[in-house]
Design a protein around this nucleic acid. Structure first.
Lengths: 163, 163
DNA sequence: ATGTGTGCAAACGGTTTGCACGTGC
DNA sequence: GCACGTGCAAACCGTTTGCACACAT
């Protein structure tokens, strides 16, 4: 992808502009966390980000990464995505998008889908002022489907042993 | 709501049938956790459930509540719903439904909405076999909207102080 | 009777906090 | 220069685990 590098640089630029506009000091650490986050297409945990950042900034502390991510979440630079049975995960993709979640292993992927984007959202509901919405699709990923198949096979043979 | 009690009893019955069908021993603790969960319309944390259960079953241990909830999640009696920046939460409502999430305080509510139920889901996407889907609406709840209004007021007055 | 669930206490791991120092603006 | 961000280490807290005993089937 030839356009990736310039795009990343542009993202970094707009990140800096964003920070300055809010009088939020642009520190090396924040820049590094932002870059690490933007470089990923998945939903890393704080610790994965920490590891990524450490390759560029070995002296960074885990605490700082947590704090920066918290700040990002609060300011809308990244969002923390939820995920049952796992530690907090972050997503640098702030554009409207949806999620695929594997009900077996919990793996999650972003999903761009124009049809889902078009669903009409209520603007107000149950006292909430609705800002936006996204669709969570639950399903079984290909790895788990395979694993399940073999598990079923072994269950069946175990059942046969019992007879 | 006159129909509530009998409905709850029926839910409990079908829970027991469900357990027996799967050779899952029906213990006092499981029954109590199920009742506590079913009695709530919101998404309690394991600890809130523990507190609820304890009023009926003072000797119960927190560990047991965690284990029972984990079992319920695995068996489809309840689902664990995700929630950034919070400990695991559970939802006894296994029927198709959607969620309202407050982006400020994280409060979450179930939302029944026939129009949202009708959105067409892809059956297969990115290697996932899609089973179902639900819509997460993000917004600001009434409490936070009020709080925000007063915060904005005080920010403005602080800004005025600075001049 | 036997497999499974439960209670307890201790371990675990991700996250937060208090404080002194360093850095961006 | 001042406010705010950072690093460190310790505290915190939700959750899990190992084990002996109890209970449902």
């Amino acid at each position: 992808m030839r356009t990736h590098q310039p795009f990343a640089r542009e993202r970094l630029r707009s990140f800096e502009r964003f920070c300055r506009a809010r009088r939020l000091p642009v520190t090396v650490q924040r820049r590094a966390v932002f870059e690490a986050l933007a470089a990923r297409g998945d939903h890393p945990t704080a610790d994965q980000i920490y590891e990524d950042v450490r390759t560029k900034l070995p002296e960074v502390s885990r605490t700082t990464v947590y704090r920066v991510l918290e700040t990002f979440g609060r300011l809308g630079v990244a969002q923390s995505v939820c995920h049952p049975g796992s530690s907090a995960r972050y997503d640098a993709n702030m554009e409207r998008h949806h999620h695929l979640v594997c009900v077996r292993c919990g793996k999650m992927r972003d999903l761009a889908d124009a049809a889902l984007d078009r669903i009409p959202l209520p603007s107000r509901r149950c006292g909430f002022r609705v800002l936006d919405g996204s669709v969570y699709l639950r399903g079984v990923c290909s790895e788990c489907r395979d694993a399940e198949r073999s598990a079923r096979r072994s269950t069946r043979s175990r059942a046969e042993e019992k007879r």
